[in-house]
Amino acid sequence: RLRTTILPEQLEILYRWYMQDSNPTRKMLDCISEEVGLKKRVVQVWFQNTRARERK
């Protein structure tokens, strides 16, 4: 499996959503993934990793 590259524009959108809610619902993940143009699972893992980084 290839690692997904997240573009700066996509990152900006993801962080904007993250500021609103760091733990989005499944429905929100659907909306975010549509807006960003990434698979739902990629967005979900990005949120998990970002929460983990914040805890450090």
Rank of each mutant, 00 (worst) to 15 (best):
R1E: 15
R1A: 08
R1F: 09
R1C: 13
L2Q: 13
L2R: 12
L2D: 15
L2K: 14
L2W: 07
L2F: 08
L2I: 12
L2C: 01
R3M: 08
R3V: 11
I6W: 02
I6M: 09
I6C: 07
I6R: 06
I6S: 02
I6D: 03
I6F: 09
I6N: 00
I6K: 04
I6H: 08
L7F: 02
L7T: 15
L7I: 10
L7H: 12
L7V: 07
P8V: 06
P8Q: 08
P8C: 06
E9R: 04
E9W: 11
E9Q: 09
E9Y: 07
E9K: 07
Q10S: 01
Q10L: 03
Q10N: 06
Q10F: 03
L11H: 14
L11R: 13
L11M: 11
L11G: 11
E12F: 06
E12P: 07
E12V: 04
I13T: 12
L14E: 06
L14H: 03
L14D: 01
L14M: 05
L14Q: 05
Y15C: 13
Y15L: 13
Y15T: 15
Y15I: 10
Y15S: 12
Y15W: 14
Y15M: 15
R16D: 10
R16C: 05
R16K: 14
R16Y: 04
R16F: 07
R16A: 07
R16S: 09
R16N: 13
R16W: 08
W17F: 09
W17H: 12
W17V: 04
W17L: 07
W17N: 12
W17A: 10
W17P: 03
W17I: 10
W17M: 08
W17S: 08
Y18H: 07
Y18C: 05
Y18E: 03
Y18M: 05
Y18R: 03
M19Q: 12
M19F: 08
M19S: 12
M19N: 13
M19E: 14
M19L: 14
Q20S: 08
Q20R: 13
Q20F: 13
Q20C: 04
Q20N: 08
D21P: 01
D21G: 02
D21F: 01
D21T: 03
D21I: 10
D21C: 09
S22M: 08
S22N: 13
S22E: 13
S22H: 13
S22C: 07
S22W: 04
S22Q: 10
N23H: 10
N23Q: 09
N23W: 10
N23F: 14
N23I: 00
N23A: 11
N23T: 10
N23E: 13
N23R: 12
N23L: 07
N23S: 10
N23C: 05
P24D: 02
P24V: 06
P24M: 06
P24C: 02
P24W: 05
P24S: 00
P24E: 04
P24A: 00
T25F: 02
T25N: 15
T25E: 10
T25Y: 04
R26W: 12
R26G: 15
R26N: 15
R26H: 12
R26Y: 11
K27G: 12
K27F: 06
K27P: 11
K27L: 07
K27W: 05
K27D: 15
K27R: 09
K27V: 11
M28C: 06
M28H: 10
M28N: 10
M28L: 08
L29P: 00
L29F: 09
L29E: 07
L29R: 03
L29Y: 07
L29Q: 06
L29W: 01
L29H: 02
L29M: 15
D30R: 10
D30T: 11
D30N: 12
D30V: 06
D30C: 06
C31R: 15
C31Q: 14
C31W: 03
C31V: 15
C31F: 05
I32K: 01
I32D: 02
I32A: 05
I32F: 03
I32Y: 01
I32M: 04
S33V: 08
S33N: 02
S33W: 07
S33E: 07
S33C: 09
E34V: 02
E34P: 00
E34T: 09
E34C: 03
E34D: 09
E34R: 10
E35F: 01
E35K: 07
E35L: 02
E35T: 04
E35C: 03
V36L: 10
V36H: 01
V36A: 12
V36T: 12
V36P: 08
V36R: 02
V36N: 02
G37E: 06
G37D: 03
G37I: 02
G37L: 05
G37W: 06
G37Y: 00
L38E: 05
L38A: 00
L38P: 05
L38V: 06
L38F: 03
L38G: 03
L38K: 06
L38M: 08
L38D: 05
K39P: 15
K39H: 15
K40D: 07
K40T: 12
K40Q: 12
K40E: 11
K40C: 09
K40W: 08
R41G: 13
R41Q: 15
R41D: 14
R41N: 13
R41Y: 09
R41S: 15
R41F: 08
R41K: 11
R41H: 12
V42I: 07
V42F: 06
V42G: 02
V43S: 02
V43L: 06
V43Y: 05
V43C: 08
Q44C: 09
Q44G: 09
V45E: 14
V45W: 11
V45I: 14
V45K: 08
V45D: 14
V45L: 11
W46H: 00
W46N: 03
W46A: 05
W46E: 03
W46M: 00
W46Q: 01
F47C: 02
F47M: 03
F47D: 00
F47Y: 02
F47T: 04
F47G: 02
F47H: 00
F47N: 06
F47I: 00
F47L: 02
F47V: 03
F47E: 04
Q48M: 06
Q48C: 10
Q48E: 15
Q48Y: 14
Q48W: 04
Q48R: 11
N49Q: 11
N49G: 06
N49W: 02
N49L: 06
N49I: 05
N49H: 12
N49M: 09
N49V: 08
T50Q: 15
T50A: 10
T50V: 09
T50P: 01
T50F: 07
R51G: 04
R51E: 03
R51P: 02
R51C: 00
R51H: 03
R51I: 06
R51Q: 09
A52V: 08
A52G: 08
A52P: 04
A52N: 11
A52I: 09
A52C: 13
R53W: 07
R53K: 13
R53H: 11
R53F: 13
R53A: 11
R53P: 05
R53C: 14
E54W: 00
E54M: 05
E54S: 04
E54Q: 08
E54P: 00
E54V: 02
E54R: 04
E54F: 05
R55G: 13
R55T: 12
R55K: 10
R55E: 10
R55V: 11
R55W: 03
R55L: 10
R55C: 13
R55Q: 15
R55S: 14
K56C: 09
K56R: 12
K56S: 08
K56I: 03
K56M: 05
K56G: 11
K56V: 01
K56A: 15
K56D: 07
